[in-house]
Amino acid sequence: MTQPRFARLARILPVCGLALLSGCSSFPLFDTRGPIGEREITIIVIAFCVMMIVVLPVFVMTFLFAWRYRASNLKAIYAPHWGRSFKIDLMMWLVPAVIVAALGGLEWQATHTLNPYRPLTSTADPVEIDAVALNWKWLFIYPAEHVATVNQLVFPARVPVSFRLTSATVMTSFFIPNLGSQIYAMPGMRTKLNLLANRPGIYTGRNYQYSGNGFSWMQFEVRVASRRQFRVWLAAVRRSPHTLDAAALRQLERPSINAPVAYYSSIPPHLFAYFIALFHGRPTLPSTLVRNGER
């Protein structure tokens, strides 16, 4: 992915600043651990710096003019009939217009490259994970591995993760601040998100769109692991005694808060599609579960 030269050059400045802040892990938006989040915070910092071109003069002029032209200062020029100046007019329309044009160019490009639906280029095959928002917890389905978890999202570092998202209840918003880009998860609809983590770590993700009484509890743990650790974890999930049969699904669909992390070693086929189909007729859940590709 190419960036405009301006953006690349401008990254030097914020990186210096970020170096200071990124040590501070309580600022996940600055302490980015993935390329998406990195680019997004860079854009924010660029926009901030560019806005200073307007903001700082406004501050200076406000204080300067208020002080200098206060009524008691009889030394200052008083021009009570002056109210027009083509040059000043031109500047005040033009300078912001130029800024907006520049930011606009950056924004057009960045919006396309940072489109959440855009798959990330990488040599590794993406990991596919389906996220389903429930009240008030998250179900993570690993369709290729035929397992699912509640409130714990694990995936390998340096591998693109391709999410499909939906909700079984109301509008929610899936966001892992350290990695970047949130996207709504909505009932009866499918949205997509593509993220990547640079290296292993433990982060927090949560729902950012108010969804009812249990909203404050709707967070989940994100573990970015090495590939080996990821395989080890998957094996542990597959050894779980819990399966996501119809009874377990009904239990999940009941509103609850503080749902403990749960592993399901087998899940019904097309589980993600089931959640979407909930809102488009009467979906039936297959009575058999899928485990490791076998029935």
């Binding site: 938006l29 989040g37 680019r39 997004e40 915070i41 854009i43 924010i44 926009a47 901030f48 806005m51 200073m52 307007v54 903001v55 406004v58 501050f59 406000t62 208020a66 930011l103 950056l106 924004e107 960045a110 919006t111 940072l114 959440p116 918003s173 966001f175 601040p177 970047g180 880009s181 949130q182 996207i183 950012y208 769109q209």
Partner: peptide, 28 residues
């Protein structure tokens, strides 16, 4: 005067939010 100074900050943060990629991490 309080308006001019303070509102300008708010306007700047608005321009930041206007950029969709920035919005993706700041929304809500």
């Amino acid at each position: 005067l309080g308006f001019i100074i303070t509102f300008t900050i708010g306007g700047a943060s608005g321009v930041m939010l206007a950029l969709p990629p920035a919005n993706y991490v700041l929304h809500n």
